[in-house]
Design a protein around this nucleic acid. Sequence first.
DNA 1: CGGATTTGACCCGCGC
DNA 2: GCGCGGGTCAAATCCG
Length: 501
Amino acid sequence: MEPVDHHIVSLVQSSDGIKRVVNEMDFFADDRSSKQHDKADDDTGLNLLTTNTASEKSSVAGDGITSSQNLKEKQRVNQLADVRAELDRINAENQRLKLTLNQVNSNYYALQMHLVSLTQRHRNRIAESSEANTQMNRPIEEKTHGEGMAARQFMDLVQTETKAENDELSESSSEDRCQELSGSPGNSIVESMERRQKNNTSRNQREDTPEGLPHPAGWLSNKGPKFNTSKDNEQAQQTMAMIRKARVSVRARSEASMISDGCQWRKYGQKMAKGNPCPRAYYRCTMATGCPVRKQVQRCAEDRTILVTTYEGNHNHPLPPAAMAMASTTSAAASTLLSGSMPSADHGIMNSNIVPKGMLPGSPNLITLSASAPFPTVTLDLTHPPNQRPLHQLHPLSPNWPHNTSLPAHLLGHPIYNQSKLLGTYLSSQGNNELSVHLSQNQMQGRPMVDTAATAAAITADPNFTAALVAAITSIIGNSHRDNSGNNNSTTSRNTGDNST
DNA sequence: CGGATTTGACCCGCGC
DNA sequence: GCGCGGGTCAAATCCG
């Protein structure tokens, strides 16, 4: 009954004088209006009644043009208030749905990454068992190639490590396993080796004593091949350095000084890098004491809106859900470089650019091979919106698609696993250390990247990403293998590395 | 006051 | 051997 009473009062007031009615209409003009707005919002019955009795008002209070106009304006204001209230409600609901969606996406991709990691480990185990058989027949020929032997040793180390973790029998890796299972899928190989390496090299490197040198043979003695010569040790040290230095670089557009990836970072340095007026910042993960993960953040010299974040190392602690997707993506890429992907001939030692930048038709920057990168690096470029990406030009069905028949169709359907395998294939065949792949980015078009974790996970699950990766890698393999005795085994990762000379 | 950031110094690898 | 550049350390400083 209160709305009705209020409405009657309003009518009486409207007939009393203009001023009173104007005050009621002036909802948003000043501070006073807010209270009245609240009153109108709180009392929705009033609005409904007002609307319903509009004709009544015009007939009952139709003793003047002014009051009639006032009533109409009041009616419009009420409707406006209704619309605004509805808009607010919808916006709030929209935000809530967005949050829910992000959360679901994050959880979904984290689970997907974990599944991919487990699948890859399963494959590694299978490959390792077959590798063990072939390895029995191989040592003599490998001794004829020093560099190849080092790479072979590296592969053996990786696989041995993988086996140890998979079998869950190694005492020394129990901690690694635990940590991996608790939060860092896909990291096991790099993580465990890196921590062992770090124990030997973190501070001793500066002391420059024989004891300070890493001792790969020491912890390898029980698992991997023996390093009997100083040359072997040196090669093993180089290999270990590469393991430690494997990197994943993410290029993303962001106005912020650092993209949010779910982890906590502490800045420990900043340097002016040559060739870039923007300083490079060095961060270290502080989510756990002793976490070896570091990252470098630097703006692109050509485009200051692009933020280049380079991750190095693997977390030794459980990750929050927000960080899981990003960490899984980057570590999957990093482990791709190292698990079954190391080239045998030059195993990452940079030589000439086999495939120069921009070699792919219609995709000038799809593939970047850098001879300057001192460490194995995978660069994920998240800066290209879908309408600018060269992806469609390399779609498997397009005329530019290289080696159509060499790639099974199912390879395009699996997001990470195949990316990893194909990356491994490519790197094995090329011996190049840096591969830059421009990814599709449906989700992030037209806005700065803030939630990189979710985005990275999303794009890696994007079939277009897979297609781009497959296209790029297959193209490279196809081009290089024309000069490489036609041994094009592009869908198997480890054997390709063995085949190179 | 404790943690984070800044910044100059130092170390190390690499090329000449 | 020397210089250069990248990476890291650690004291000083800032900030909540």
